[in-house]
C-alpha cells in the first residue's frame, strides 16, 4: 500500500487546468462585485480592532470571512471542479465556528499593546497586512489582471493568510494553536495546488504559514516562565 502511495503526485489530486481555476476566480469576482471593497474594508477594520485591543469584535468579523469564502467559493463553486471542495468548505465553516466561539466564549483576551520591538505579534501584523492589503495586488499583478485579484473574506487563500497573522496578534497559548490548525493546513493545501497550477505566488501561503508558526513558537517561548493566563 505504501508503495502504491508513492506513485501518486500532487498533480493527481488536481482535476482541472490552471485556465479553469483562474477563470473561476475571475468569475467569482465578477459575480460578487463590488463586495471586494467592503471585504477589504472589513479586513482592514479587523487589523485595526486587534491593534486597539478589541479582540472579540475582530474575531466575530473574521468568522464571517470564513463562512463566506467557505460557502460562496469552496462549496458553491470550487466543489464543481473538485469533489474535495465540499470537505474544504466544511473545514472553513468549522474555522468560522471556532472564531465565533472565541468571540463570544467567557475568556479574557489579553488586549495589551504590542511592545516597540521584539514582539512576535509584529510578525502577525506583517502577515495580516500582507493577507489583507498585499494579496489582491500580488494575485492581480502575477495572475493576469485585477479581475483575478484575490480579496480577503471572499476567497480562501487571503482569508487563511490574513487570519493566521491576526490570530498571532490576538491570541496566545492553546487558543492560538487550536485556532491556527485549519488556516495552517489550508496554506499547505493551497501552496501545493498553486504549485501544480504554476502560479508565481505558489510559495507565499506556505511562507506565511512558516512565519506564523515561527511567531507562535516565539510567543510560546517568550511567555513560558509566566504562563498564568491559561
Amino acid at each position: 500500500m505504501m508503495a502504491e502511495w508513492r506513485t501518486y503526485a500532487v498533480e493527481d489530486f488536481i482535476p482541472f487546468t490552471p485556465e479553469v481555476y483562474f477563470r473561476m476566480i475571475e468569475r467569482t469576482n465578477e459575480a460578487q462585485w463590488p463586495l471586494q471593497f467592503f471585504a477589504l474594508a472589513g479586513g482592514a477594520t479587523v487589523v485595526v480592532l486587534i491593534l486597539s485591543g478589541r479582540v472579540r469584535p475582530a474575531l466575530a468579523v473574521l468568522s464571517a470571512a470564513w463562512f463566506w469564502s467557505g460557502g460562496a467559493f469552496l462549496i458553491h463553486r470550487y466543489a464543481d471542479l473538485n469533489w474535495a471542495g465540499v470537505y474544504f468548505g466544511w473545514a472553513y465553516f468549522a474555522q468560522g465556528v471556532i472564531l465565533l466561539g472565541l468571540a463570544v466564549a467567557p475568556w479574557t483576551p489579553g488586549g495589551d499593546r504590542m511592545a516597540r520591538a521584539l514582539d512576535p505579534r509584529w510578525l502577525g501584523l506583517a502577515v495580516a497586512t500582507g493577507g489583507v492589503l498585499l494579496w489582491p495586488g500580488i494575485t492581480a499583478l502575477a495572475g493576469g489582471g485585477w479581475a483575478r485579484a484575490e480579496v480577503v473574506g471572499l476567497l480562501p487563500d487571503p482569508t487563511a493568510v490574513a487570519t493566521l497573522g491576526i490570530l498571532l496578534m490576538a491570541l496566545k497559548g492553546w487558543r492560538l494553536w487550536a485556532a491556527s490548525v485549519i488556516p495552517l493546513l489550508w496554506c499547505g493545501v493551497t501552496a501545493l495546488m498553486l504549485r501544480v497550477l504554476e502560479a508565481p505566488w505558489a510559495a507565499l501561503p506556505l511562507a506565511s504559514a512558516v512565519l506564523v508558526v515561527a511567531g507562535m513558537v516565539w510567543s510560546a517561548v517568550a511567555r513560558a516562565p509566566a504562563a498564568a493566563d491559561d
Binding site: I14, P15, R23
Partner: peptide, 13 residues
C-alpha cells in the same frame, strides 16, 4: 477527458 473537460459551469470554456 481527465482534467481537460472539467470546466465547471464556465460557459465560455
Amino acid at each position: 477527458t481527465w482534467r481537460t473537460f472539467n470546466v465547471g459551469d464556465d460557459r465560455e470554456l
